[in-house]
Design a protein around this nucleic acid. Structure first.
Length: 690
DNA sequence: CATTTATAAATTTTT
DNA sequence: TTTATAAATG
């Protein structure tokens, strides 16, 4: 994705741009919309734009580059730096909307009532706090079913990000909860209050308050004037609130460039709206529109198939991708009798390609949902094919990691009730009720600025708890006191984590399966923490830019190894591989059964399918298992259901594929063989609770 | 009365 | 693997 088109060198990068790209790179300013088709060198163009701006005298620190992940920003700035032989990386502002909001609010948030030492909650924390409040209010204990905590968090987030009223949100997205509207509303009210009181911001607040900050009468101008040029990548996946922020940051004469592709909008579930990119020109008067339609990635046959798929989308913004690449290999549609044969076919094809010179890491297997690769992972392990999985469970979501971080977060913010609750209930003999009482007695909810810290209170006057819990609570108190000691000369973050780990060790051993690997995870976390300048920075960076998996932390030894990429389609966004294997291209998988309610949802799935197809450079294999094992085959061994090829491949489109059947002449492989041989980076340990 | 343990049911995509 | 509910235990 970051490779320049053929023949580009640091010296002659301008010559490597096509006409449209050059136009986008060299436009003087004003509002610009770059509609960039898949594989049209969008990222490369943005990097060149940054290089061009700096060459023409813009100071790097006056540039703001908003991207979908921090990694994307980093790589783009590094690339720009290499083009002009200057260090842009440290000086320009780059990152996600959320990370940028975080930074701006810490620097300038005071006038709107934001203290610079706030902590950031992720979505799971939000859900936990909602759960806590729900419990206190006694909602959900009655006969009527109250929404689950994750549902509550999702509702809240949608009201904020889409800028819609709660009633409307519930009506449209959570119709089964309409009867509980009053209760939901009161939970949200308490939630907002609680966040305030505890000096905590959630993801949504980072955007919400950034918006408020720029619109603030006093400080707004100052923030606005920080940036001479604002560039936004993946604009099709921004939400209403983000568009509002950009509008607030913009004033006539200032420079805003957004880049995106409406055909690749796949984040509606996160409240993103294609309207942003479709209505950009209306919102920002004087917009220049540039279209990038030359595709540098795929061979024509793959492009033809992709174009045909997206052409069936009714809400589309006409765009025809073309390519100068040679090669006539058509994509393959491989029908498999069942999932096992699909795994088998993928493995064989992957090895075939490797024999023909395509290393594993230039190949990827893509799928709709994280668990769709489960069976394949077993087969890969059995055949000793190394792989790394993107998407799905992330390191930070592992319970033991959250436990360790909760200890640190209490040290950072002694009024963080969710973290107190989490750690206290880990202690043997302490359940929700005792934990609540302890929190009460320690004054975690008190929040008087001059009052004694709950941490000190816990150590000096330990609350009454069951006898069996006393010793462990004592150890907790000491660990906490050590971590939070002397704010002026804080212990190194790594040391604090080590302290937390020592406290947690017996708990991890007792509570979780495969405790040794979990404890290893915590040690890895310590290595990561060793580089952090401060605890606050470490915690914020971790929530805003989480390492994908334990693999990310494993360090350099893996870098020269070859491994296959497994990825959800969402996580594959913006990436490309020589060979792409798309599995489970059956109706019910993509589109997902859960997303066939509304037309909009189906269209989103179609774009998702399109994104998957357009990741491929040279070869594309689409697999469809015809028979699925039923989830819980009760008694009957061969209980299964039949699937159909995804509706996004009607006959006319299928004619652009070479069709074949996998494994027809072969016996299914013996799947009873024990699995041995671990993949290189199997992601977080997935041991179950004891 | 509170906590732990057992059992059952459901599980998209992610900053 | 997580989460809600029910039964068993302290």
């Amino acid at each position: 994705m970051f490779d320049p088109p053929q023949g580009a060198s640091p010296a002659g990068w301008r010559d490597a741009l096509n006409e449209q790209q050059r136009l986008a790179v060299e436009l003087p300013g004003g509002p610009v919309l770059v509609v960039a088709g898949a594989g049209s060198g969008k990222t490369w163009t943005l990097a060149c734009r940054v290089a061009h701006l700096i060459e023409s005298g813009v100071r790097p620190e006056r540039l703001l580059l908003l991207t979908f992940t921090r990694r994307a920003a980093r790589e783009m700035l590094a690339r720009a730096g290499s083009l002009i032989g200057r260090d842009v990386l440290g000086k320009a502002w780059g990152g996600t909307f959320h990370a940028t909001g975080n930074r701006l609010l810490r620097l300038y948030g005071r006038p709107i009532g934001i203290r610079p030492d706030f902590t950031v909650m992720d979505q799971a924390d939000t859900a936990d706090l909602m759960d806590l409040i729900r419990g206190e209010m006694g909602l959900g204990s009655g006969e009527r079913r109250f929404p689950r905590k994750d549902t509550l968090a999702a509702m809240y987030s949608r009201t904020v990000n889409a800028g819609q009223k709660l009633a409307g949100v519930v009506d449209r997205w959570f119709p089964w909860c309409t009867e509980e509207l009053a209760g939901i509303r009161s939970v949200f009210r308490a939630y907002v209050e609680r966040k305030r009181a505890q000096n905590v911001l959630d993801y949504d607040d980072l955007l919400l308050y950034w918006n408020a900050l720029v619109r603030h009468a006093g400080t707004g101008d100052r923030v606005q004037e920080l940036f001479e040029h604002v560039l936004v990548d993946e604009y099709q996946d921004t939400n209403a609130l983000q568009a509002d922020i950009l509008q607030a940051m913009w004033r006539p004469g200032s420079n805003l460039m957004v880049v995106g592709d409406d055909a690749q909008a796949i984040y509606a579930f996160r409240s993103a709206t294609v309207k942003n990119i479709l209505e950009f020109a209306d919102r920002f008067p004087g917009t220049t529109v540039v279209k990038l339609e030359q595709n540098y990635r795929s061979v024509p046959a793959i492009l033809d198939a992709s174009n045909a798929v997206i052409a069936l989308s009714p809400q589309r913004h006409a765009k025809e991708l073309w390519s100068e690449r040679m090669g006539a290999r058509r994509p393959a549609l491989v029908t498999c009798l069942d999932e096992t044969l699909q795994s088998d076919a993928v493995c064989r094809s992957v090895l075939d390609h490797r024999e023909q010179g395509v290393p594993l890491r230039r190949q990827a297997v893509l799928f709709r949902a994280a668990h769709h690769s489960d069976l394949l992972e077993v087969e890969l392990a059995r055949r000793n094919i190394p792989f790394v999985k993107y998407g799905g469970l992330r390191f930070l979501e592992a319970a033991h990691v959250k436990d360790a971080l909760a200890v640190l977060r209490i040290a950072e913010n002694p009024f963080d009730e969710v973290c107190w609750f989490r750690v206290l209930t880990l202690i043997e003999g302490i359940g929700p009720v005792v934990a609540q009482r302890v929190i009460q007695e320690l004054g975690v909810r008190g929040r008087g600025a001059d009052q004694q810290s709950p941490i000190v209170r816990l150590r000096d006057r330990p609350p009454r708890v069951p006898g069996e819990s006393r010793a462990e609570l004592q150890r907790f108190a000491e660990a906490l006191a050590d971590c939070s000691a002397a704010t002026s000369s804080e212990l190194p973050v790594g040391t604090q984590l080590e302290r937390a780990r020592r406290f947690l060790e017996p708990i991890v051993n007792r509570r979780y399966s495969s405790p040794s690997s979990r404890l290893r995870d915590l040690e890895q976390l310590e290595h990561l923490a060793a580089e952090a300048p401060s605890r606050a920075r470490f915690l914020a960076d971790l929530t805003l830019d989480p390492p994908m998996s334990t693999g990310d932390l494993a360090g350099p030894p893996l870098l020269d190894e070859d491994y296959l990429i497994l990825s959800t389609i969402h996580s594959a966004k913006g990436l490309e591989w020589d060979v792409v294997h798309l599995i489970h291209a059956a109706d019910g998988m993509i589109p997902s059964d859960l997303a066939t309610g509304h037309v909009d949802e189906i269209e989103e799935e179609r774009r998702l399918f399109y994104v998957a197809l357009t990741r491929a450079r040279d070869a594309l294999h689409v697999y469809v298992p015809l028979r699925y094992q039923r989830r819980q085959p009760r008694g009957l061994e061969d209980a299964h259901t039949y699937a159909q090829v995804t509706r996004f491949l009607p006959p006319a489109v299928r004619s652009l594929f070479d069709e074949r059947t996998a494994g027809g002449d072969r016996k299914p492989p013996d799947t009873r063989v024990a699995t041995t041989g671990a993949p290189i980076a199997p992601g977080p340990q997935t041991g179950r609770r004891k």
